[in-house]
Design a binder for these strands. Structure first.
Length: 549
DNA sequence: CGGGTCGCACATAAGTGCGACCCGGTGCATTATT
């Protein structure tokens, strides 16, 4: 008999002291305790962890939580153990001594009761180890939780390829999967579900609008003009605030310049010592540092209510990233300035980061090695045979698998019969190129946000698949239009919108897509295999470029 | 893709202009040294 709504509420109150839920939270919890897979998109992070913590404490067994950062795992563990008044959660990683691992497994193996481990936190790298997988399979697992699930799509493909192996864990445990993230546009959600092998997941989204964020942007021709504007703005706005830049060097430069004008600023990036990073984070939380100038390294796990501005000195790689970064502002609901400083040239570094093409030779070598085996070969065995560094190895193997030349089963990898090395390499390269095209189209959407003359909030909401009024009245474009007595949005007089928002359409070359937005007599469609494309509405109608499926 | 730095040619004093070259983000785990 599954726990009821009342059981969940009782646990929430007794263990965590939470008396109220937001509507979506309870809905997500109920789905999970009833055995359904859930993708939960909750923008601000407020109450996101409750969605798995309450069901896990209510259900018998132990929840396995996959989370990208050890620091994040520690925070969650401490919060749980403190609320429960006992050690109910363990963080497992390579830095923990064997004795701690043993203790965690022993506690997880106990019958339900005060000494029982109710949560095990692991990174995807640990979950991918065969011995860990076996131990997990032997446990009575209640839920499999994938926290910050957008990392599957954003990092899995080459940065942390073990994310792409989580589908094996999903299959091996065969328990409800709860995927949590703060942002995910529809295609990112679809990719999460697909990569994790989720079974018709229930999608729960709490809505993306953050009405207290004031949105604005400015475009520059000259790099020095932009730099001056960023410094001047950061010096004038109410603190605390965040300045996001593209490179480590820039964090140092901007932070130094701000310090020189007497501001309490510091630079944050992954090249700084763990000690410095920790200190800056703490000082920022305590309002001892007012402005953190950071790369994308400063982000997940930062939960500070009173951030008064989020200024981007460089454009991010996608609207998904942008939304996540600006979402760290104004969590207290007070007015917060969100500003994007943009130069078209800044798109270059994002292209560079996304541009890595796989090594053909290594692909061929790896495929031949798999093919040589007549029986499925486990990853560890392959790795030993080949002289490839482990990270490259995983990402290349993933590419071969995703492009269909290699199949994965519980006992290892096999080459698809009848496929030659040449074909396999070609398929992998094409797959990888398609991915890069989609990445490019996501960057292109970010450029459109930077350059739009229409309501920015509507642009963001449409991007995440939500409808929105033509004008929000709280962004630079709406304010300009109001001052000039204009109306934004598609005009009545225009040929308007031949296909409704969020409806499906077909294009002869790009295949199936979803209508995302209309703007300036263009329509933006998200194609499953080609990414975002923006077309002239006039041409679409004239040439019949889009059809109902 | 774009920006910064370095060295060279130019040419006759100290600098300019140009091309070649290198570099750039996120974290896990692991390994070799202090």
């Amino acid at each position: 008999m599954s726990p009821s709504r009342a059981d969940l509420q009782r646990t929430a109150s007794e263990v965590f002291g939470w008396e109220d839920f937001r509507p979506g939270q309870l809905e997500a919890m109920e789905a999970a305790v009833n055995g359904q897979d859930v993708i939960c998109v909750m923008p601000t992070g407020a109450g996101k962890s409750a969605v798995y913590q309450v069901p896990a404490m209510t259900l018998p067994g132990t929840a396995v939580v996959i989370s990208p950062l050890i620091a994040l795992q520690r925070d969650q563990t401490e919060a749980i153990n403190e609320a429960a008044g006992a050690t109910r959660a363990y963080v497992l990683n390579s830095a923990q001594p064997q004795g701690y691992w043993d203790e965690a497994w022993a506690a997880a193996g106990k019958d339900d009761g005060p000494g029982k481990a109710k949560f095990l936190f692991l990174g995807p790298e640990q979950a991918a180890r065969e011995e860990v997988l076996e131990l997990l399979q032997a446990l009575d697992v209640s839920l499999l939780v994938i926290d910050e699930a957008h990392c599957v799509s954003a990092w899995g493909h080459d940065f942390r390829p073990d994310y792409l192996q989580l589908d094996q864990l999903v299959r091996a445990l065969d328990k409800p999967v709860v995927a949590l993230t703060a942002t995910a546009a529809p295609p990112v959600r679809a990719e999460i579900a697909e990569q994790l092998g989720m079974r018709s997941p229930r999608e729960i989204s709490l809505g993306f609008d953050r009405p207290n964020l004031h949105l604005a942007a400015a475009r520059y021709e000259d790099a020095e003009d932009k730099r001056r504007a960023v410094l001047e703005q950061a010096g004038k706005l109410d603190v605390p605030g965040l300045v996001y830049v593209a490179t480590r060097a820039e964090t140092e430069e901007y932070a130094a310049a701000l310090q020189e004008s007497g501001l309490r600023a510091d630079a944050y990036h992954a090249g700084r010592s763990h000690e410095d990073r920790h200190r800056i984070h703490e000082e920022f939380l305590q309002d001892e540092v007012d402005i953190v100038v950071a790369t994308t390294a400063f982000g997940m796990g930062i939960d500070k209510p009173n951030v008064r501005f989020v200024v981007h000195a460089d454009i991010p790689d996608s609207v998904d990233s942008y939304y996540q970064e600006i979402g760290r502002g104004g969590r207290d609901g007070e007015p917060t300035e969100i500003f994007l400083h943009y130069r078209p040239e800044d798109l270059g570094i994002r292209r560079f980061f996304a541009a890595k093409a796989p090594d053909e030779e290594a692909l061929a070598k790896l495929f031949k090695a798999v093919k040589k085996h007549t029986e499925p070969v486990p990853q560890a065995g392959l790795r030993e045979e080949l002289d490839l560094n482990p990270r490259r190895f995983s990402s290349l193997l993933g590419l071969l698998e995703q492009s269909g030349s290699v199949t994965a089963a519980d006992d290892g990898y096999s080459a698809r019969s009848g496929v030659g090395a040449k074909t396999a390499v070609k398929a992998a390269l094409e797959f990888s190129e398609q991915r890069r095209n989609i990445e490019e189209s996501r960057l292109e959407m970010m450029r459109q946000y930077a350059e739009t003359t229409e309501c920015r909030r509507r642009f963001l909401l449409n991007y995440f698949g939500e409808d929105a009024p033509d004008m929000c009245g709280y962004c630079d474009n709406c304010e300009r239009a109001e001052a000039e007595g204009e109306e934004l949005g598609p005009k009545e007089s225009d040929t308007a919108q031949p296909f409704p928002l969020q409806s499906e359409v077909i294009h002869s070359e790009w295949g199936l897509g979803t209508v995302m937005s209309y703007e300036d007599e263009t329509v933006t469609v998200l194609f499953e295999s080609a990414g975002y494309k923006t077309l002239s509405v006039e041409l679409v109608l004239e040439k019949g470029l889009l059809q109902e499926p």
